[in-house]
């Protein structure tokens, strides 16, 4: 059982760039990603949106593996700004976890 952390949701999703809630979970992004990052972005975003902070941090490496190439974004049917969303997560982790 993972507790939904509303404060975490607020922290991540309050960034106006973060628009992953429009995601319809189709999986196209995962299929086209050249890095074959299995988790990115749909699951990762979902963890972020659900406020599952620990799950997000567990996958810190994936967050930094992304090339920000936007291959996924170009193919996303729901206009999710995937690369910007990844940046939001990096911003959060860099600041809150690594204290940068």
């Amino acid at each position: 059982m993972i507790k939904v952390d509303a404060a975490f949701i607020e922290r991540v999703t309050s960034d106006p760039e973060f628009n992953a809630t429009a995601c319809m979970n189709c999986g196209v992004c995962t299929a086209v990603c050249p890095m074959e990052i299995e988790l990115l972005p749909r699951k990762l975003f979902r963890y972020a949106m659900l406020g599952l902070k620990d799950k997000v941090l567990e996958h810190t490496e994936s967050v930094y593996q992304c090339l920000l190439c936007k291959m996924c974004e170009a193919n996303c049917g729901a206009d999710v700004h995937i690369a910007d969303n990844v940046r939001c997560l990096r911003g959060y982790i860099s600041k809150e976890i690594f204290g940068l």
């Binding site: 059982m1 993972i2 507790k3 939904v4 509303a6 979970n25 699951k43 979902r46 963890y47 659900l50 599952l52 799950k55």
Partner: peptide
């Protein structure tokens, strides 16, 4: 509210 989220492959969530 406790629920098993099928979209994260069955993660069990606890929502206040």
């Amino acid at each position: 509210v406790k629920v098993k989220d099928m979209l994260t492959a069955g993660e069990e969530l606890d929502i206040e």
